[in-house]
């Protein structure tokens, strides 16, 4: 009796061992296959993202001239110069912050209003959506940036309208008061992608909520502020983060509209443009450019972090639905 039991136990443990070995083998095989499949991204991540970012941090403490290849360790000199000795740097920061903090809220506001408008349309939604999205689809291109410059040129479209309205021509692109507003207007004009995301968000809200509110006698406005807005906060949050990051990185439009210089008087000298000028322009110093890029990374990370932390207080997740 005992011997049979022992024999059985032995059999079982052997079986267990086989299973375990098989499992181990399968686990190892899976690990190998997993890393094999993600290897393209993994290699790219190390060679094109992680190492360059680390290298950029090291470079930011040096003076690097790409033409001669001279690297000179300067410690915190780049950062000191940036914060205390480079008035252009602060003008670039001002222009970028002004651009981001005006264009992003306006853009999101328009996107939300138009999404709400289109959400209520029964017919022709597809056509309207295409029309409102068209500026965004072409907006990042050089062709449209060039067109924008010509619209606000001294003999351009806007001045033509000004003359028709009995007003004087204005040099929009060369006036320190107006130049940045042409870029803000262009950014707001391209509210297409947040609009589409809002539209998708609006469709997620169950119609029962609105019906119930109607029965309780809620009007259009209170329905919007009490149902739509709270339920849309996750989408607003997402759009806010993405658009803020994109607007901090704006380059093409500023480069074309300002002729690559950030004129007039650096009022359109966006941060990315200034990095480009300092790293690839005349007398380029890639160390300085790297230092600026790293400050940008830290600032964007901080902003994103702050929005994430604050989201606890204003983003509403509908737990009942999940």
């Amino acid at each position: 009796m005992t011997s049979v039991l022992q024999k059985d136990a032995g059999k079982f443990s052997l079986a267990k061992k086989v299973v375990a070995q098989k499992g181990n083998k399968k686990w190892r095989h899976n690990n190998l296959m997993g890393y094999l499949f993600i290897s393209p991204w993994l290699i790219g991540f190390f060679t094109l993202t992680l190492i360059p970012i680390a290298a950029s941090l090291v470079l930011s403490f040096t003076k690097y001239d790409i033409l001669s290849g001279d690297v000179e360790w300067t410690g915190l000199e780049n950062f000191r110069r940036m914060f205390y000795d480079d008035p252009r740097y602060w003008r670039a920061v001002r222009a970028t912050v002004k651009f981001a903090f005006i264009s992003v809220p306006l853009k999101l506001l328009f996107a939300l209003l138009v999404a709400e408008l289109l959400y209520n349309a029964r017919r022709l939604v597809g056509v309207y959506r295409a029309v409102y999205y068209a500026p965004s689809i072409v907006g990042g291109s050089i062709a449209v940036a060039v067109m924008w410059r010509q619209i606000f040129a001294s003999k351009g479209l806007i001045n033509e309208f000004m003359l028709d309205a009995g007003l004087e021509r204005k040099l929009w692109l060369f006036d320190i008061k107006y130049a940045i507003w042409t870029l803000i207007l262009m950014a707001v004009w391209q509210f297409g992608s947040p609009m589409l995301i809002f539209l998708a968000g609006l469709k997620q809200i169950p119609s029962e909520y609105y019906e119930a509110a109607s029965i309780d006698g809620a009007g259009t406005v209170s329905k919007f502020t009490r149902i739509t807005l709270p339920l849309l906060t996750p989408v607003i949050f997402f759009n806010l983060v993405m658009q803020l990051i994109f607007s901090f990185m704006t380059f093409t439009q500023a480069y074309v509209v300002s002729g690559g210089t950030g004129r007039p008087l650096d009022t359109t000298l966006f941060y990315s443009l200034y990095i480009y000028i300092r790293s690839f322009g005349v007398g380029a110093n890639m160390g300085y450019g790297s230092a600026m890029a790293w400050v940008m990374l830290v600032v964007i990370a901080t902003f994103t972090g702050v929005i994430f932390l604050s989201s606890r207080f204003w983003v509403f997740y509908d737990t009942a639905e999940n």
Binding site: M33, T49, I53, S56, M249, T304
Partner: peptide, 28 residues
């Protein structure tokens, strides 16, 4: 596979990375 969640999170976070930071070292 081991570390899948970690790498996936890393990948998602790179989506928000400003390309300017990689630009200069990549150029070099």
């Amino acid at each position: 596979f081991t570390g899948k969640k970690f790498w996936f999170a890393v990948m998602l976070s790179t989506m928000m990375l400003p390309s300017q930071v990689q630009l200069i070292p990549q150029y070099i």
